[in-house]
């Protein structure tokens, strides 16, 4: 299968509060991750807040600067060093769906203007009637009716706003769709509608989807492969089956056991592996394995050496204790 995106030792760091009086503090949002995304697949990235999943996603579409490392798109464009023209090429092929469907739409623009904007910007040679036809076709694709075209975002519910956001992303006919918590803000009944829409669109348009969420239920439903992140590092990466059923990394296990399942019998019977404490600060990540401060199995070795990612059984794992 073709690698549409190949990420190697990618780092995204943010500098905080640099001033004349104090030295800069560095947030290690993404701290050296490597993975591949294959054409047509759905890769899920899970992790808790502060694990760097959003920073990673935003770096892949140009919203965050890549500090170091490499991200090769479509085997041709290196995102870490891409120039304006190359980025415009990437924008045509990599689009983003935001978490807050309402905030992602300019309240002063009509639906038509919102959906048409990427097309008008990136394909300035298109005529107005071509643009219009494309807008209408895309609206139909995501389940919006054409008589909503001149309305403003405030007249729509959250679910419909998310459809408008998806239409804006799809009008460019991108290869890759990055969904950053795109269904988290929606009501349960609407969430299912949007998830189904995304799945239908993926089949129809042969999209590659990178789906970021903290909701392990949604990730399990929609994704083929899962990448588990913690404090800017990859903990485990593997097929859905092997991650959910044969998780190796202690963090993956703890995360999976912490998710409440909508089934009282299972919940009552379940042994929850409670993690102590909170996420450490990404400004001063722990030495050694970043998970060692909360890991129930942490040893001195964990506190001293940062684990290498290695293939164990079917999963890529980074843990010194797993061989």
């Amino acid at each position: 299968m073709k690698k549409i995106l190949s990420v190697k030792d990618l780092k995204v760091h943010f500098h905080l509060g640099r001033s004349w009086f104090k030295s800069a503090r560095v947030v290690h949002a993404v701290d050296g991750v490597s993975f591949d995304v294959f054409e047509g697949e759905t890769l899920g990235i899970v992790g808790e807040s502060g694990c760097g999943k959003s920073s990673l996603a935003r770096a892949l579409c140009g919203l965050n600067k890549i500090t170091s490392g490499s991200a090769l798109f479509n085997e041709t464009i290196e995102l870490a060093t891409a120039n304006k023209a190359q980025w415009n090429d990437v924008h045509k092929q990599v689009q983003f769906i935001f978490q807050d469907p309402v905030a992602a739409l300019d309240p002063r623009m009509t639906v038509a203007e919102i959906i048409a904007e990427p097309l008008i910007t990136l394909y300035p040679q298109m005529t107005s009637s071509q643009v219009m036809a494309k807008v209408l076709a895309t609206m139909k694709l995501v389940g919006l009716s054409q008589n909503q075209i001149n309305r403003y975002p405030q007249e729509f519910s959250g679910g419909q706003c998310q459809r408008i956001g998806i239409a804006r992303a799809l009008i460019l006919e991108p290869k890759v769709l990055i969904c950053d918590e795109s269904v988290s803000a929606l009501d349960v009944s609407i969430k299912a509608q949007i998830i189904n829409l995304l799945q239908d669109l993926q089949q129809q348009l042969k999209l590659t989807i990178i789906f970021i969420s903290h909701d392990l239920g949604v990730i399990k439903h929609i994704c083929k492969r899962i990448l588990v992140m913690y404090l800017g590092n990859i903990m485990e990466l593997g097929d859905k089956q092997s991650v959910y059923e044969n998780a190796l990394h202690p963090y993956t296990k703890a995360l999976l056991s912490a998710v409440p399942v909508a089934n009282p019998e299972l919940e009552k019977a379940k042994q929850i592996q409670l993690l102590e404490g909170d996420l450490p600060s990404p400004i001063n990540p722990p030495k050694g394995c970043v998970f060692n401060t909360r890991c129930p199995q942490a040893t001195n070795e964990c506190r001293a050496t940062r684990p290498q990612t290695k293939m164990v059984a079917n999963n890529l794992v980074s843990c010194v204790q797993i061989h």
Partner: peptide, 21 residues
């Protein structure tokens, strides 16, 4: 705001983002 970020991903230039959004 996310709609400004959405415009950035659509390749809209900074001047246009200021005047349009």
């Amino acid at each position: 705001k996310e709609f400004v970020e959405a415009a950035m991903i659509s390749g809209v230039s900074n001047l246009k983002i200021i005047t349009r959004h």
